Amino acid sequence: MSTHDATIGAAIRGALLTAEPQAKVMAARKVARDWRLGRLAWRFDAPMPDRPARPAAPELLPPNRMPKRGKAGSQRGRIALWHALAHIEFVAIDLALDMAGRFGAAMGEAFVSDFLAVAADEAMHFALLDRHLAAMGSGYGALPAHDGLWQAAADTAHDVAARLAVVPMVLEARGLDVTPATLARVRANGDAAGARILERILDDEIRHVAFGVKHLAACAEMRGADPENLWISLVRTYFRGGLKPPFNDSARLAAGLSLSASRALAS
């Protein structure tokens, strides 16, 4: 391994520029493991790309051009649901890597450790979902996917507090809110394996949102601001559309998210 390859910045950039899904999963997990084992020098000597590499499939469409999923109980509808979830987790790998690589130099080693752990979790979630799609006779890339998630990263590339406010504390927190209803539907369809995957993802996402809360609080302290007020003002500035209830209050509380601030952002 050359010295250049063994820096944290170059390793994260390399994973972001890996397009093929299984290779990206392996790259993200390798960066997290190498960092944990002390194999990467603390140098951010490689700029993060504006966009991560993407595989040839799925075709990426604007959210308003996405085809309808089909009836919820149909095989086509079920595959569309799992494909959409797989795409969210695939993009989430890059969101976590970019968080660590773009802002890690300023935010410190604990920040990098947290978000590389998130990247490794998202890689595992994606692999589980892709395997579940394969068991249904499909796979990631078989259907179009929307390109809206990365927009949040582009809009907040200049400010770590804005990124924390929007990505873990709004987008991932929305996962906490919608997963219980999805879980109920999956159980009603008799998909026990799928339900286990969603339970695992929900548990992990609570921790991911908590990392966002923790590090936004550190940003607020550095800026002499109140964490809740900072969150509200950043979301109103950088997130298109308010928060959509109903909220999963118990999961939000477990992650340390303010319910009063969540409701303020929904009104």
Results as ranks from 00 to 15, higher is better:
residue 260 S to I: 09
residue 7 T to M: 02
residue 68 K to A: 15
residue 159 D to H: 09
residue 97 L to T: 01
residue 54 R to T: 12
residue 183 L to H: 08
residue 21 P to T: 05
residue 117 A to S: 14
residue 147 D to Y: 09
residue 180 P to F: 08
residue 266 A to F: 07
residue 85 L to V: 11
residue 114 D to I: 02
residue 176 L to K: 02
residue 200 R to T: 14
residue 18 T to Q: 03
residue 45 D to G: 05
residue 191 D to I: 03
residue 139 G to S: 05
residue 198 L to D: 01
residue 48 M to N: 01
residue 196 R to S: 12
residue 100 A to Q: 08
residue 108 G to C: 07
residue 101 G to F: 00
residue 30 K to D: 15
residue 213 V to F: 04
residue 173 A to T: 05
residue 123 A to F: 00
residue 157 A to M: 12
residue 183 L to A: 11
residue 152 A to S: 14
residue 161 A to E: 03
residue 257 L to K: 04
residue 86 A to S: 09
residue 171 L to D: 02
residue 244 K to C: 12
residue 118 V to D: 13
residue 76 R to G: 14
residue 101 G to K: 00
residue 97 L to Y: 01
residue 211 F to R: 14
residue 169 M to H: 03
residue 60 L to Q: 13
residue 206 I to E: 00
residue 231 W to Y: 12
residue 22 Q to T: 11
residue 65 R to S: 13
residue 116 L to T: 07
residue 216 L to S: 09
residue 89 E to T: 07
residue 45 D to S: 03
residue 15 A to N: 06
residue 16 L to W: 02
residue 124 M to H: 14
residue 253 L to F: 06
residue 38 G to L: 04
residue 97 L to E: 02
residue 21 P to L: 01
residue 204 D to C: 05
residue 70 G to T: 06
residue 117 A to K: 11
residue 70 G to F: 01
residue 41 A to R: 12
residue 127 A to I: 03
residue 53 A to F: 03
residue 68 K to E: 15
residue 145 A to L: 03
residue 239 F to Q: 13
residue 210 A to S: 13
residue 154 A to R: 14
residue 215 H to K: 06
residue 223 R to E: 13
residue 160 V to W: 07
residue 199 E to G: 10
residue 163 R to P: 02
residue 172 E to C: 04
residue 36 R to M: 13
residue 143 L to Y: 09
residue 67 P to T: 11
residue 167 V to A: 08
residue 43 R to C: 10
residue 252 R to D: 00
residue 29 R to G: 09
residue 126 F to M: 02
residue 160 V to I: 12
residue 23 A to P: 02
residue 32 A to N: 06
residue 165 A to G: 04
residue 188 A to H: 09
residue 21 P to D: 04
residue 81 L to Q: 13
residue 196 R to N: 08
residue 132 H to K: 05
residue 176 L to D: 01
residue 132 H to Q: 05
residue 237 T to F: 07
residue 50 D to Y: 07
residue 90 F to Q: 01
residue 166 V to W: 02
residue 11 A to C: 01
residue 37 L to N: 14
residue 75 Q to D: 13
residue 65 R to I: 08
residue 31 V to S: 00
residue 232 I to Y: 04
residue 235 V to W: 05
residue 131 R to Y: 06
residue 154 A to D: 11
residue 233 S to R: 15
residue 235 V to A: 12
residue 82 W to S: 06
residue 140 Y to A: 04
residue 104 G to T: 05
residue 218 A to K: 12
residue 125 H to P: 00
residue 193 A to C: 04
residue 79 I to Q: 08
residue 86 A to M: 04
residue 208 H to Q: 06
residue 38 G to K: 06
residue 34 D to I: 05
residue 189 N to M: 14
residue 37 L to C: 12
residue 166 V to L: 05
residue 34 D to M: 10
residue 157 A to I: 12
residue 177 D to Q: 07
residue 139 G to R: 10
residue 7 T to A: 02
residue 200 R to D: 09
residue 204 D to S: 12
residue 257 L to W: 03
residue 232 I to P: 04
residue 170 V to K: 07
residue 229 N to M: 13
residue 92 A to F: 05
residue 91 V to T: 13
residue 38 G to F: 09
residue 152 A to G: 12
residue 162 A to P: 08
residue 260 S to R: 15
residue 70 G to Q: 00
residue 151 Q to C: 10
residue 203 D to R: 15
residue 75 Q to E: 14
residue 136 M to L: 14
residue 194 G to Q: 01
residue 217 A to G: 13
residue 173 A to P: 00
